[in-house]
Design a protein around this nucleic acid. Sequence first.
DNA 1: TGGATCGTTCGGGGAACGCCGAAAGGTCAT
DNA 2: ATGACCTTTCGGCGTTCCCCGAACGATCCA
Lengths: 255, 255
Amino acid sequence: MTESRSLARLAALLADATRAAFCLALLDGRAWTSGELARHAGVAPSTASEHVTRLVDGGLLAEVRQGRHRYLRLAGPDVAHLIEELSGHTPPDPAPPRTLRSERAAVALRRARTCYDHLAGRLGVAVTDAMAGRRLLDPDGGYALTGAGRAWLADLLGALPPVKTRPMSRTCVDWTERRPHLAGASGAALCAHAFDRAWIARIGSGRAVKVTPYGRQALADLLDLDTDKLDTDRLDTDRLDVGGLNTDTGGAVSR
Amino acid sequence: MTESRSLARLAALLADATRAAFCLALLDGRAWTSGELARHAGVAPSTASEHVTRLVDGGLLAEVRQGRHRYLRLAGPDVAHLIEELSGHTPPDPAPPRTLRSERAAVALRRARTCYDHLAGRLGVAVTDAMAGRRLLDPDGGYALTGAGRAWLADLLGALPPVKTRPMSRTCVDWTERRPHLAGASGAALCAHAFDRAWIARIGSGRAVKVTPYGRQALADLLDLDTDKLDTDRLDTDRLDVGGLNTDTGGAVSR
DNA sequence: TGGATCGTTCGGGGAACGCCGAAAGGTCAT
DNA sequence: ATGACCTTTCGGCGTTCCCCGAACGATCCA
């Protein structure tokens, strides 16, 4: 009974569309200011301030005050995992994007993005599949690193990432693909490495990333991964998503 | 924005203490009637009826109507996983049990219980640790089944459990122990096997289970597991839980 | 057929919640 | 110091939500 109260309290933090929008935005792993969150969600700064305070008090967000700014980030990987998990259980999005702007943004997000600290979208899934195909991950065992995978990762990074509280590798079923991709400490290390080496770079201010020419070559060398195929895949699943409706406009706008 | 709406809608289903109590009760994996849930949560039948309808509509619960009864169960393992995940992020319970009755119940729950379809509590953790110690699970790899683990399980059950949508093995950080234990298809199969062979049996009508003499022997033979030690462990962690306060009453009551 | 049990629907009361605008506190740059 | 900017507090409005009791429909048993 006291148990159900605390569960309800936690869920209530995410049970509001504005707070949920905050958390989803913060899934990019970076720190946003209170005002940025307000504009992003389309509410008054005063409203955002109250929401942010509740999320911090509830332990979901961590804050850093700097001058007149209040920087907010997710409290940790476990919170990010929680949000992802909940998003994964959400019914598929029925509303097609309205404007050309939002359509382009949605396409970029589906193709490649970060999911807190690891890769997601078609790129994340493709990397995970390629690693599984080379026996670096074990698809039957929750996509855990195999012995070969550990060696491969240590060779790539110089050392295996340290494991404190979070698992070394974990799957994250993502929001657009509905397929598992690599998360956990190894997923985060791999993503950080890709940013360091400029294999990937952020597009604008959101979660979307693009593969650089460097990255295209590196991923081909490392995993036989053809990143150009990310577009082909998109067309296939688009066809599935809309169930045969208006494939024309969808295809035309996305060009 | 439409994305945050659906996340909020899902979270709102669990953002009420009564609905949360329903879901936690249903974590025992069995079907409860609407009236049972009402009594369990201490609300009027009419109130429970509305809550149940919302949970079913939201996809969290599945219903089977039989005569004048309405049987409710969690919609699937993924929903159970979600509830467990949320419970795991709940702050530790500060309220000690009041009555002797509830104290005894809490002790039994901590010792051994089911968590939807797999084992949890000290027993679940002990089995998982024993399997990891014998290299049947890989602690560094998200507690995935190793090759030896697959063979061991296939030998025990006659065949490996079929894997459709859920992962073969997965960890579930549980509510009292805060430590991982085996879940997923293999965890469910192992638990079902233990019930079939009468290694374990339910205590009363809740989630608590006890180890039978059969089970005591079988677990010792299979995994060198000394189920009598579950009590010793309990005392140790009790001491940690209460932080040095009233260890006397805690120890005395639990005898 | 009558009575008991289980569930649902409906109306209403009370509380909690989310939102805003106005006003004010800090902080930074000129 | 002055003005621009970011954030917070407060009062108030409207909505939603949770709960109950009463009445009703359905089912099972005697």
